[in-house]
Design a protein around this nucleic acid. Structure first.
Length: 116
DNA sequence: CCCTTGACGAGCA
DNA sequence: CTGCTCGCCAAGG
């Protein structure tokens, strides 16, 4: 599997995430058969064209702890993602330190590989 | 070819 | 809860 196929597989899988559900980078990696490439799932989403057609609901992908990565101070990516999820009806908790988190027990989507 | 970076994950103190 | 270590691997300098 080359880089282009990897990206395609990631986008394809992310589109399968139901509305009002979230999953993790690591689980996306498992679903496409590359459990050790969680970092590259993030890369694929990072390179994604926001105007892709059909759209890719990248905002439904968070870290394994349920937290939304900050992307560093000065960037508003985390806030955008949190807002997008909130707008869809997903409960996003904001910790005192400003961290946004999602409750997997209520909104998690983790199908076993091969069952989708 | 070596070194550093990451929208990551799991384990441990 | 926070912080640190190690494993992972493609990309870019």
């Amino acid at each position: 599997m080359d880089s282009a196929e990897f990206h395609a597989a990631v986008y394809e899988t992310v589109r399968l995430i139901p509305a009002q559900k979230v999953t993790s980078y690591g689980h996306i990696a498992k679903l496409i058969g590359m459990p050790n490439h969680s970092r590259h799932v993030g890369q694929a989403l990072k390179f994604l064209d926001p105007a892709a057609d059909p759209p890719v609901p990248w905002y439904r992908v968070v870290s394994s702890s349920g937290a939304i990565s900050s992307r560093g101070p000065g960037t508003n990516g985390a806030r955008i993602q949190g807002d997008a999820l909130t707008a869809e009806g997903v409960e996003v908790t904001v910790t005192p330190s400003g961290e946004r988190k999602v409750d997997f027990s209520a909104f998690g989507w983790f199908p076993a590989p091969g069952t989708i």
